[in-house]
């Protein structure tokens, strides 16, 4: 057939290595080339490991208060000293990564699920549904985040991690919803969506087979960056006493020690380490997020 002439060049080259050329593989290759992002992954992995293996890294119980040995200086037994209640700071630092990561991750997951559902429905259907969801989001965004969480936490009296995470997700869904709605709005106008509709595809199929896979890039990137934000929020809330209550160790409530001027001035080992851990974790996650953003951006595809 004469019409076969042009079919030989670009595709035949990639035919023998077809397994390596799924869009995800390409993104992964690009991600690997970003040094800071890879470093971020390693750092985050180490922090996760620290959280998992904390019991093996220190003999101390992070919640055990040795009231005879408060505000202790670093020594051979307590590597970073003890806090004002006599708890081992090093142990709390290690165990604290558990809570910070768990809260950051689950708050992110929770928010992403809410945001993806609401955002995709709003963006795909548009019209009245879109209007209702987005006006709700606008109302929600009018309240300052911390103030709202503080209020809810104050009303609830008893706080555990699950409730805390739910509150954070409930308060922060509008931002993610907006981003996902915007992604869906722009996807909706793409020709391949029109094409899916013209072959007779159902709404369900179009959303799940065509739109969501193409929205995964922005969703993953925002989820990552959002997780960093959630870790900071947790620290901030715990610092002012509205987060996870003592004696459960979190980096945020360890910083509470620094509320005392004496500790701030003369016992830096009590508050600098948790501060550094927060900074390192958030930085690592943000680097990963930036790396993902570059890797998943289809406009920068060089394969």
């Amino acid at each position: 057939m004469e019409t076969q002439i042009d079919t030989r060049h670009s595709a035949s080259k990639s035919l023998n290595k077809s397994k390596e050329n799924t869009p995800w593989r390409i993104a992964f290759r690009k991600f690997k080339r970003n040094r800071m992002a890879v470093l971020g992954v390693w750092v985050l992995l180490i922090i996760v490991m620290i959280g998992i293996f904390a019991p093996y890294l220190t003999p101390h119980d992070p919640e055990y208060a040795d009231l005879l040995n408060t505000n202790g200086k670093p020594d051979k037994v307590h590597w970073l000293g003890t806090d004002s209640s006599g708890r081992d700071i090093f142990a709390r630092l290690l165990y604290g990564s558990r809570i910070s990561l768990i809260i950051g991750f689950s708050a992110m997951l929770f928010t992403i699920v809410i945001g993806t559902i609401l955002g995709s429905v709003a963006g795909y259907y548009g019209g009245k549904i879109d209007n209702i969801i987005m006006r709700l989001a606008d109302i929600q965004l009018n309240f300052p985040f911390l103030l709202l969480v503080m209020t809810v936490v104050a009303i609830l009296k008893e706080i555990n991690i699950l409730i805390f995470v739910s509150v954070m997700a409930f308060v922060s869904w509008p931002g993610i919803t907006r981003i996902i709605r915007a992604t869906f709005l722009s996807l909706r106008e793409q020709e391949f969506i029109l094409s899916a509709r013209s072959i007779g595809g159902s709404d369900f199929r179009i959303i799940f087979r065509h739109m969501l896979p193409n929205a995964m890039g922005p969703i993953i990137v925002n989820a990552t960056l959002f997780m960093a934000g959630m870790i900071i929020s947790e620290s901030a809330l715990s610092f002012i006493g509205f987060g996870v209550p003592q004696p459960t160790p979190t980096w945020g409530n360890m910083l509470t020690e620094a509320l005392s001027l004496r500790v701030l001035q003369y016992e830096p080992w009590a508050w600098i380490p948790p501060g550094i851990m927060i900074v390192i974790t958030v930085l690592a996650i943000n680097f990963i997020g930036d790396g993902l953003r570059d890797a998943l951006d289809p406009r920068m595809r060089k394969s």
Partner: peptide, 19 residues
């Protein structure tokens, strides 16, 4: 349509406009 059957496993970005 004048394409090899093996091309089925490839993704659109690996093809030219005509393909």
């Amino acid at each position: 349509v004048g394409l090899q059957a093996e091309y089925g496993s490839l993704y659109p970005h690996e093809f030219s406009g005509g393909q």
